[in-house]
Design a binder for these strands. Structure first.
Lengths: 221, 221
DNA sequence: GTCTATAATTAGATAGAC
DNA sequence: GTCTATCTAATTATAGAC
């Protein structure tokens, strides 16, 4: 199962794996999330996947293409996690059902941010400066997500169930409040000694966000 | 006021400025905030300050020392902005006064995050991975800030003025919700077409956060 | 203190043997 | 497809003239 390279004294494995592409992608998520696009080196990504650096250029076109594939993959997981939670057509949907759906969406988003911190890490790394990557990511992935929750929030605002915050601001309040403990989990552990990826933290966090963003949901007993 | 280097044909200014250190520091804030520690190059920092790259190593010990100086400077500004807003000694402080003080602290923090997005940008870049920089920043600057608001929140929680969220979680909800529009201002502009640094956005944002985090403040008319 | 030149290291990407 | 060797470009830091 193991063989030395004939022309060299170095002990190294020569392996033929069918899942290297997936392993490189998975590794890229983590490295891009932790270090950002510039800080993550293709050598470090390859090392985490137990592969060699040139394999990235073989299985992907470039470092940038690997980043794009990683972002596509993560947003696909997010879409899965939020699939059908908020109704696409709002006319005729009664308010209590919509409020419950929005609360469910908040909880799912918090759990997703905890389980896949890499997505929000990459988003916040990229969002700090204008770039082609940011433009592509915003138009391709963020905008549909944003447009999906905006009308529902507006309805809940109009009937007084949702907190008094405008659409655009609400989006960033929600994403910021829901993701920061997981985006900055290393800091959370240093600062508080607690583990934000624990079920206790995650559920308490989700409960808190639902309570403050949808005060009208539990207002009348 | 202008002189060519005698041994070279290149036209370049030789200037003697007394404020180069400050100019480099100011430039470093912006570059570190926008690109992160690894993504920000000392050449780009020097260029923005209209200086030469080796001047960074003359006026600062290294790129890391420049980063440290920038973080020290920004946290100094934050301390100034929040100076004395929340009373250090809570025994004997009546609840309405403390609630008003906390609301004021939230508003000041939002305005600070809008005016100096670089601090939260740097924090969120660094918080995604363990490092010596993160450990130093957390212990030196974040912890005192965290410890300053924690007891006040607990008091307001106990009397039911503050939202039902635990100390540690509240800290990240507050910081995340208050800073993300400014940390990711380039994305906000692409996604919404609005300018998060406008007074309208900032005040609406601050109002919204006070409303959701301190629901008991305006509950009884 | 400023500035040019450059050393030392590391990055992403490619060539070519296997 | 894997892997070693290497190219080119970019990085931080330093040397030394001015």
């Amino acid at each position: 199962m193991q063989s030395k390279a004939p022309t060299s004294g170095k002990v190294r494995l020569r392996r033929a794996r069918t899942d290297i592409r997936e392993a490189l992608l998975e590794s890229a998520l983590v490295e891009f999330g932790a270090k950002g696009f510039d800080g993550a080196s293709t050598r470090a990504i390859a090392r985490r996947a137990e592969a060699h650096q040139p394999q990235i250029n073989y299985h992907f076109e470039s470092k940038a293409a690997l980043w794009t594939a990683a972002v596509d993959y993560l947003f696909g997981l997010l879409r899965e996690a939020l699939q059908g939670v908020i109704p696409a057509e709002l006319t005729g949907v009664d308010v209590p059902r919509l409020a419950a759906a929005f609360a469910d969406a908040i909880r799912r988003f918090v759990r997703f941010a905890a389980e896949h911190p890499e997505l929000n890490q990459i988003m916040v790394h990229e969002g700090t400066a204008a770039s082609d990557r940011l433009t592509w990511m915003t138009q391709t992935h963020v905008k549909p997500f944003f447009d999906g929750i905006r009308p529902a929030w507006q309805v809940l605002r109009n009937v007084g169930v949702a907190a008094p915050i405008d659409n655009e601001i609400l989006y960033y309040v929600l994403v910021g409040a829901a993701s920061l403990p997981y985006v900055n989990a290393p800091e959370v552990r240093l600062l508080t000694g607690r583990d934000p990826s624990s079920p206790q933290w995650i559920e308490a966090h989700a409960d808190g966000l639902v309570a403050i963003l949808l005060p009208g949901l539990t207002a009348s007993p």
